[in-house]
Design a protein around this nucleic acid. Structure first.
Lengths: 338, 338
DNA sequence: ACTTGGCACTCCGGCACGAAGAGTGCCAGA
DNA sequence: TCTGGCACTCTTCGTGCCGGAGTGCCAAGT
């Protein structure tokens, strides 16, 4: 077990390194933080911390830098979440309240988060797995051609064209529309399949083929919509990554272009609260020198999607976590209002 | 006027510099291209070209590199558009044909273009200014709440909620829907306002308020939709920009995040055919060391939107232009089919 | 009037060398 | 267990030097 002071030394190292981006030595530490011990003592502590794998030296006789394990300990035990100042909070709220539709909310959120954290922001569109159906509409565009429109409680609208196997009458269509809505409105997506399963039985055999097609399309839309989309922003902040950085930035940009990777990244974080993935804790190889801070957000009590930032492992964790948490909270509010 | 051989020298310089990224000297030139003159002669030509501002030296007694003006001449007079190989063409077609909807078409196009040119690709969604209305639908969701759905011939669907000043009957709604469609279907967006102007007169005074609201929303949707969206990809290719590049890449990433900038960039190119903007020809400051190759594409004879790539001024113009043109052509075909 | 070879000059890039600085490990003493 | 001191290690700069590549110009050749 590490003594209290050693933890304090680790904290100081992390803080200094985050600030200066340079390996930090024993002397500088005792000066900048008022540890009440001499450099020599700190050196002993550092040796112990290095032994345990919390810090490392880039080369012999250089200062120490935290390892992934060191950051992990820092985040778990040594650092809190730094709350935002109230002007910041007000700015967030004002900025988000100007949004006119869902796309706009997500767009503003991603810009806000990027600006606040000065890192790359990733915002997932509200997922539909937890969403409910607000309305289903069927339109006859032509005798054997329908349009299906699905409206969700998160404000998203999806539409699909349907080519029917046989023409369908207006009255039948109206009947179908009414029955469909009475069954599924207000229900969760996951419930819909079982709720509409026996619907064709209420209709003439002639129309069943068409109705099957319509239902199939509806279910398909629900499934497809669950494949979440996301928006990213603030990639210009990658240039602040490090001095070496063509090599660093490249794989990150590549990873960011692959939505699949990002979705997995956000999705893997099982904790309903905030999750911090540090360096190699990220599965994706290109992100092994980055950390991901993510959190769920939602309109009600449940999270409907996630948002987060991607930055260098050497980041200001308390500040970033504070910003991420605050933004998530306000976005949730905005979504609940609309 | 520059002699034939001097133009040849300029072409050789551009080609070599694009290949090697290093200033090119007289000796190397005579070796790699079989100019039938000695290095000394080439030196004289180079001095003349430099005098005219087509090439420059980074420092005294280094090789020459082309200036923006030099690239301009190269593109205008010295280089053609390099057609793609037929395997490439086939690959493009196959890749694009797999697309299932408009988003997918644009997404695939952007990835394709980025891969083909190894640069940053920008694809504008098909614009609606030239588009026509395929269908307008009105749904009564609640007594005083409607949904307007607009379907365009490019396959885009937009919807808006409408809160009516007064409840509206089903029959009136059906009447409105029918009249609206008979007037605007097949018409261009720009024509719609004048076509629906006198529509309220055909209805009872009680309903006119609501109908005005509906029409206003429709027109608003048309206008808003004309604000084009776009998709970008291949930002990881920015890492191949140059050795210096934190300074180069930063403003480019920033510019790419501002859709407004990009839209202006694409929009400014008035030429219906291919446009090449070289270095400082771009208005935006951050892009002064990049070139933009853009071209319109469309489903029929008319361009409905643009696509292009952003890369270093030192790029393979013939190849890039060939790829951009080919992709635009195939996307046009795909759009026409759907 | 061009073209060519020769020559002197310039400048960048790489390398070795040395000095300075920062940091470490370890040891002996408090 | 902490502290001060000391020797050692490594990186980082700055300097000086050299080779190579390229230029400009001039005088001679076609």
């Amino acid at each position: 077990m590490l003594s209290e002071r050693r933890l304090e030394v680790l904290r100081a190292i992390v803080q200094d390194y985050v600030g200066t981006e340079e390996p930090v030595g024993s002397k500088a530490l005792t000066e900048r933080h008022n540890l009440k011990v001499s450099p020599a003592t700190v050196r002993n502590d550092m040796a112990a911390l290095e032994e345990e794998g919390y810090i490392a030296q880039p080369h012999t006789s250089a200062g120490r830098i935290p390892t992934d394990k060191g950051y992990r300990l820092f985040v778990d035990k040594l650092a809190g979440v730094k709350p935002l100042s109230s002007p910041e909070r007000r700015a967030i709220q004002n900025f988000l309240e100007g949004a006119v539709d869902l796309d706009d909310v997500v767009g503003r959120t991603v810009r806000l988060l990027a600006q606040l954290t000065r890192q790359v922001a990733v915002v997932q569109y509200p997922s539909l797995t937890r969403s409910t159906v607000r309305h289903v509409e069927l339109l006859g565009l032509a005798p054997a051609r329908l349009m299906l429109v699905l409206i969700t409680d998160t404000g998203r609208v999806e539409q699909r064209m349907i080519d029917c196997p046989a023409p369908i009458g207006e009255t039948v269509l109206a009947d179908l529309r009414a029955r469909l809505n009475s069954r599924v409105v207000g229900e969760r997506f996951t419930e819909v399949p079982s709720l509409v399963q026996d619907l064709p039985e209420a209709f003439d055999a002639d129309d069943r083929g068409t109705i099957q097609t319509v239902l199939a399309t509806l279910l398909e839309t629900l499934v497809e919509e669950t494949e979440e989309r996301l928006m990213i922003g603030g990639t210009a902040n990658l240039t602040r990554f490090g001095h070496d950085f063509p090599l660093t930035i490249r794989p990150v940009l590549e990873a960011l272009e692959e939505q699949v990777v990002l979705l997995k990244l956000l999705g893997e974080a099982k904790d309903p609260g905030m999750t911090v993935r540090i360096g190699h804790e990220n599965q994706h190889e290109g992100l092994s020198s980055t950390s991901v801070v993510s959190v769920g957000y939602g309109s009600g009590d449940e999270a409907v999607a996630k948002l987060g930032v991607v930055g260098p492992t050497r980041m200001d964790y308390p500040g970033t976590m504070g910003a991420v948490r605050a933004v998530a909270r306000y976005v949730g509010q905005i979504l609940a209002e609309s």
